[in-house]
């Protein structure tokens, strides 16, 4: 079994799925109806999208200090992005932004 081929394949899968998440995040940002669902879509780009793309890039790198830096970047992104999303949603809620919900079902 060719190890390099295996690594390349894994790297491609990660890069493509990362790109897919980024694309879906962008699509959701445009198409979703209200702020909260849009933020949900955007958080996909922040976490899974960037995580997979960075992992895919890491598989293509040699064992240098840049690799360690990317690990640090991933850790930083995984900690800060959900926090930022939470803070944004919280601020929106406090500012009085109402989630768009389906109308209450008619009483039979």
């Amino acid at each position: 079994m060719n190890v390099q081929l295996l690594i390349d394949t894994a790297s491609w899968i990660l890069l493509l799925s990362g790109s897919a998440f980024v694309f879906l995040g962008g699509l959701g940002l445009l198409r979703m109806p209200d702020l909260y669902t849009r933020m949900h879509a955007a958080s996909l780009t922040d976490t899974l999208g960037s995580l997979f793309i960075l992992l895919g890039i890491m598989l293509q790198m040699d064992w240098t200090s840049s690799l360690a830096k990317l690990v640090a970047v991933i850790g930083f992104l995984l900690v800060t992005n959900p926090t930022a999303t939470y803070a944004l949603a919280n601020a929106a809620l406090l500012a009085g932004e109402k989630p768009r919900t389906a109308p209450a079902p008619e009483k039979p």
């Binding site: 930083f76 900690v79 800060t80 926090t83 939470y86 803070a87």
Partner: peptide
């Protein structure tokens, strides 16, 4: 709580 905890952590 969440931003504060994460903030003091980083």
């Amino acid at each position: 709580l969440v931003p504060r905890t994460v903030g003091t952590f980083i």
